[in-house]
Design a protein around this nucleic acid. Structure first.
Lengths: 347, 347
DNA sequence: GTGAAAGCGCTAACAG
DNA sequence: CTGTTAGCGCTTTCAC
């Protein structure tokens, strides 16, 4: 076992050839430079023998191109983001790119840190789910001519391309569905305040109420996180004050919130949908298999990843960008977690 | 906006200083080299002004150390692997390392490709969930002195450090629990054949049966994948032949299989646990919230990630490795998906 | 057909 | 306290 790793230079020396020749052969440029069959064979063989591995670091430095992209997500363990990551990785690989993974943990400091890190690694582009509270660092980054695409969350009126879901209309439809079923006192358990997904969803919630001349009560908007914990805690709170508020339905802005809510309701013996109805953002393969099949706002994650990669590579390859902001549609999947209160009246 | 990105050299030229001085200041070595306050300030300020970003590519090349690690998983969208990825990323970040993410898609060719890629990127180490069918490429890699740790799946009698779950005893306990509740005709829906997790789980299943003098019927072992689809399809098959086989319980080797199985049973109006009991590997925050709360074999993913990082950095820093193979314990969480058939007899 | 040489941006040993 | 210099491994222009 040779201890020093083989390089283009060591191969060249070994064969008493020049590095450039070896480089050419190993890069498949033998034809172009009309390098003799013999040399080609010699080089390829010794490369194999010496277990030669090209050094991408050196190559990147020389070419000023790394063939890597950065991916920043708030929480890779969230299935929704993991799904996005999967698409990004697969598509990147197809194009010969590798991906740096960063987890911002919904922490702005870490997000900023990650952006800097990726700058330092000279990635050819970045796809990210921003935390969404602050965008100056992102704008700086984008303005320094590094291709950037936001995914899932974005900033209104800020010149950074994004691909996201039409959270607003998804929420709007969900609330309208609730209203059509006779609900008026509708709670909303929201996610991280200030993120576009949350803002859009809450706006959709409010506007649907307004459209139907239902008073928007700010005290019906609960919580501040997309996670399980928040869903659990806020639902407990809702249940506690049920006789004061007369809430009959919950609009949950995320799948994890919904799971937390289900846990709370189970513990408190609240019957869904008879006592409280619930409708949730995010569809999963178990949405149908929970103790009460959940009506959901479905959005399409596979397209998100693909579109994002498309936008990014358009930038990387300087193609003309026709539309650099994409909002994918949502779809309402009705199941059994919403009670029709109008029928009751008829009874 | 300066178009050329600032480098250490451009700053040096700009200030009529030497690159080494600038380098020292920017690396916080000013004290050590007793560089004058004035120069330090000058350098830091212009660096900020010119929006200087250190070039990690160049640094890596020079240092022959990249401060990156590679992570290879079969499917990042699988919550179990995503959780691992989360831990790895967080721990790496703490230590100042970045992570390259590769998704092998349970495809050996891609796994080999990924390993090569990571070699070319000169990562300082690799943590991976191997597909598990083939290990020669991994052994080669490990023998070329690049730190490597396997996680979740491993190879018996192969000299590569790993940290995994005690799949065998987890499965054994689950089956014994079934037997103690009067089940004898127990189906097993297995995952990817040949992977250590699958082999261990199936062995645990078989050995528990043997211990209780129950005949191991190979026809009771179904399927070949850890995913939802497989769970669904195999369960359909099981249901179809129920009157021939008299199967009363299913041992599911993964969470996704279980979800698929639940869907199939729901469609076929099979009552759990009265018609069929089920016990499943993998605990999730919704295990309790499914239409029937599922008894599970719980394992502890947070420790997995941490331990793996620990083993890896021991290698990277050449520390003595006390024990380079770790098998974490499992725990049986009993819920309502297993029927006690013995009580029935007493009735 | 092959080689020589410059240089990507950075660090560190050596020199003063 | 600061500068000089070599070199990490690679590509590519120019030369013959």
């Amino acid at each position: 076992m040779t201890h020093k790793r083989a390089t283009i230079t060591s191969i060249a020396k070994h064969l008493k050839l020049d590095v450039s020749t070896v480089s050419r052969v190993l890069n498949g440029l033998a034809k172009k430079y009309r390098i003799s069959e013999k040399t080609v064979e010699l080089v390829t063989n010794t490369a194999k023998e010496l277990n030669y591995t090209p050094n991408k670091i050196a190559k990147s430095l020389r070419l000023k191109k790394t063939f890597t992209i950065g991916l920043i997500v708030p929480d890779i363990s969230n299935p929704w983001f993991a799904e996005i990551a999967l698409r990004i990785e697969k598509e990147s690989r197809k194009k010969g790119y590798n991906v740096f993974l960063c987890n911002s943990s919904d922490d702005l400091a870490i997000e900023i840190d990650s952006i800097n890190l990726l700058s330092e690694w000279k990635v050819d582009g970045v796809i990210m789910v921003p935390i969404g509270l602050e965008y100056n660092h992102l704008l700086n980054f984008y303005n320094s001519k590094i291709p950037l695409v936001l995914i899932d969350r974005f900033f209104k009126n800020v010149e950074i391309p994004y691909v996201s879901t039409n959270d607003y209309s998804g929420a709007f439809d969900a609330i309208e569905h609730l209203i059509e079923n006779g609900h008026e006192n509708i709670a909303c358990i929201q996610g991280v305040i200030g993120t576009s997904s949350n803002t859009q969803r809450v706006e959709g919630y409010e506007d649907a109420l307004k459209k139907h001349h239902i008073n928007v009560n700010k005290e019906y908007i609960f919580g501040d996180n997309f996670n399980f914990e928040n869903g659990y805690l806020q639902t407990k709170k809702i249940i506690k004050n049920l006789n004061k508020t007369n809430i009959t339905a919950i609009f949950s802005t995320s799948n994890q919130i919904t799971l937390g809510a289900l846990k709370a309701m189970k513990e408190e013996n609240i019957n869904i949908p008879d006592d409280i109805s619930i409708i949730s953002f995010d569809e999963h393969n178990y949405s149908d298999l929970l103790y009460i099949p959940i009506s959901t706002v479905t959005h399409f994650d596979d397209n998100l990843g693909k579109k994002a990669i498309e936008l990014l590579f358009n930038q990387i390859n300087n193609k003309t960008i026709e539309q650099d902001n994409i909002l994918l549609p949502t779809h309402l999947t009705k199941r059994k977690s919403v009670k029709n209160r109008l029928q009751e009246v008829t009874k």
